[in-house]
Write a protein that binds this DNA or RNA. Structure first.
Lengths: 212, 212
DNA sequence: CAACAATTTAAACACTTGTTTTGATCTGGC
DNA sequence: GCCAGATCAAAACAAGTGTTTAAATTGTTG
């Protein structure tokens, strides 16, 4: 068992357990025992529990943002006019699918993202913003260009509305799907749900402000 | 200091601290010391930490759902045709304002609601569903009537998209508002944000599924 | 092979957690 | 005024937390 082995076994276990129970609810002993490594390994390889949490996000977010960036590069280079639906498609299908392709569970990723916002972990939010803020701003910029004439502040809020709908829905996907199965005898796959989310989010972004 | 005094002092402190840091991150010692009561008081009056958490939600949700129900009753009795925007207005302005009127912070309430979904507290979700599920179903029923011809499963998902946008945005209101202030030199009040949310959410609920 | 560094292991450390216990104190009804 | 029942207070409880230590083991390199 080489070093990389131990490190990635810890990351695998932590990723699953954090997504299931949250950060403080998951002890290092639970992580190391399900990973089959010694308790001290976390502090040896990562330094502290905080740094382990950041490492879990790093392993998720780096390929995600790289895939998204490459996808956007390709489309921009091809001179495509990027509509709202296409941008959201890149974000959802491209980025999310890239994780699924690696055998990683995309909704686990979404749960973790939601937790980064909800749980009281200042260091995490700071880490994510400093590390991936640029990718975020690029996407937001392209999206606002696809919404000509929109008031900047309105756009800003709508972007958060969309993020909320996405993160909340996908992070509770299992629970929502369970109710759906019970009440409607129907079920949804994640890609199907994303297909539902794209037009709904697009409509929200484009809503004109006159009504109401 | 009578019993009610101690009980409500504990609830006040717990409400604030839970909203700030989450449930597991808030110890009973922190709660009791900021409340100025003895540590054992929580277990004496509430039984356990779990039951304290539920009591915090009970104090929030009961007046909230009652105000909402009364508002809906009044409108239905008056024979009003309930449009999507009006229903959302009842939910947001009515319910939320009722809490604000009592001097309670509505966004604190939203943060707690978000946590009930995000944090790994099975007992809480079960408690909320069993206690307030009916109010939820009534509102959902009225909302679906305002969206004639919508496919039930589509409606179901869109409802969750809307809940996500609402809960996420309002529970992170402070953080979002801080960025807004920095980047745009603008700021938003909660009522303003709700005014932005209503048309956006309505547009999302009504989006036709043909596009994309 | 020898020597040095990297890694793993078991044990202990210092501290915090929710809960319980055991008296003390207060309160309202006779 | 007194006495039962409710409330409060201090202390202790057992269990769990992240982290550190120091020795044993493994891996690598000259």
């Amino acid at each position: 068992m080489t070093q990389t082995d131990t490190v990635s076994r810890i990351l695998d276990a932590a990723e699953v357990l954090f997504a299931e129970r949250g950060f403080t609810e998951t002890s290092l002993r639970t992580i190391t025992s399900t990973a089959g490594v010694n308790l001290a390994a976390v502090n040896y390889h990562f330094g502290s529990k905080k740094e382990l949490i950041q490492a879990v996000f790093e392993r998720f977010l780096t390929p995600f943002t790289e895939t998204l960036a490459a996808d956007l590069d390709r489309r921009v280079a091809a001179g495509e006019k990027l509509e709202v639906e296409e941008l959201l498609g890149s974000l959802f299908r491209g980025g999310v699918a890239s994780l699924a392709a690696e055998g990683r569970d995309p909704q686990r990723f979404m749960r973790l993202l939601g937790m980064a916002y909800t749980q009281h972990q200042g260091h995490l939010r700071r880490y994510i913003v400093s590390r991936y803020g640029e990718s975020y701003r690029r996407f937001a910029g392209l999206l606002s260009q696809a919404l000509p004439g929109i008031d900047p502040v309105t756009f800003y809020w709508r972007l958060y509305f969309m993020l909320g709908a996405t993160i909340f829905t996908l992070s509770s996907f299992d629970a929502i799907d369970a109710i759906l199965r019970e009440d409607f005898d129907a079920q949804s796959s994640l890609p199907e749900t994303l297909d539902r989310l794209v037009p709904a989010a697009a409509a929200m972004l484009r809503a004109d402000t006159e009504k109401s």
